[in-house]
Amino acid sequence: MTKTKFEILLVDDDPIVQFLHKSVLIDCNLSDQKLFSNGQLVLDYVLENKDNDVLFLILLDINMPFMNGWEFLEELNKITFKPTIKVVIVTSSIGASDKEKSKNYSQVFDFFEKPLENNMIMGLKNNEDLAPFLNHI
């Protein structure tokens, strides 16, 4: 899945959280990211850009209006030609059931409990798909 481009997509309906996550990413030298406030918006964006040779890293909230995180993942499963997507769930939920449920989706490779902190982002470097794009942080 060698891609030449890399994009971080922040998906959360809470403007304060969007601001916080953005701040943490900037603090980790990841200044370029796109913001979305529900699953539908990010799905549309990903579908529009799926042919652009991009690896998408999505930081996905679960509880959102219109299309929540689970519904977004379900929709993603229905698409035959899959864009290259790596999903980290970032949620305020601490119920064990959500963490269990996230394991059913192949795109999800990590599960963060809010608040998002610098060390969590640093940890993403350990993923071999992401490492080439994150070695500067």
Binding site: H21, N63, S93, D98
Partner: peptide, 15 residues
């Protein structure tokens, strides 16, 4: 797990 913790998580992020 979901409702009460959401504003707390926000507060923790700000902190």
């Amino acid at each position: 797990s979901h409702v009460v913790r959401a504003p707390l998580a926000r507060l923790m992020g700000i902190m």
